[in-house]
Design a protein around this nucleic acid. Structure first.
Lengths: 120, 120
DNA sequence: AGGGACAGTAACCATAGGTTACTGATGACT
DNA sequence: AGTCATCAGTAACCTATGGTTACTGTCCCT
């Protein structure tokens, strides 16, 4: 088997792919790759995230050392999220995925239409 | 906003990220990047997929034109899945993600332990 | 006649994700 | 002095996706 044993569910690599493959991680990391953002800015930037889910995602990424969470004792409260060095290294392959997506959306949408018409 | 409008939920790019961000797409594309596989081979290769979910994933990828499904009228039945050219182009950034994962698992696991100890 | 190979589907259950409303502290406005 | 807005979440609830186990159909082999 090539590429390590990423296909074994008990392999740590799989654990990481599971994390990357959650619905919001890619968007969050990509948003933070540009610059540090606070909670509400992230919420606005990544359209459609429920606050609960955003919190979950951020906690998980913090736990993995992908980003750092900084709380400022102010009123109204201010919490900033920044990518760590590890997070910045992850941002690169993620940007590659996004480039691919942007470059191939039209093909995919065409394919979908064709497929749906063939079925229906 | 940089990188197009991938953060807008209605943007087509987002649609693709949603697809890539499902639990099995990355593994399936990565497995097929090596070579054409039949259903049962995929099931064995990608440990832990339920057949139902594998079928769903494969149908979705076929619809998007990422892979081609070929049925041979034999008994026992034979169905082969092959990446299309589009699929092969997607395999590249996916491989980059996998490389990142393999290179950074240990950091992440260390971070997790530290985080869990700090909380508990 | 019975069992095995293969590619799924059917029916059911568990968990992750999503929605809406709410908290708590303070400053600004009327 | 009372009311409203700001901000970062939580709480309680509901739904949709993912997961599990069992089963189907066809033909060959023994």
């Amino acid at each position: 088997m090539v590429r390590g044993n990423a296909f074994d569910p008990d392999c740590p690599t799989r654990v990481l792919l599971d994390r990357i493959g959650d619905k919001w991680t890619v968007l969050v990391v990509s948003a933070l790759a540009e610059k540090t953002l606070r909670f509400s800015e992230l919420r606005a930037q990544v359209g459609g995230v429920a606050p609960k889910v955003l919190t979950q995602t951020l906690r998980a990424l913090e736990r993995d050392g992908i980003l750092r969470r900084r709380v400022y004792a102010e009123v109204p409260p201010r919490v900033e999220y920044t990518l760590t060095r590890l997070g910045r290294s992850l941002a690169e392959p993620i940007a590659a995925i996004q480039d691919w997506a942007e470059g191939h959306v039209s093909s995919v949408l065409t394919n979908r239409e064709r497929y749906d018409n063939a079925v229906a």
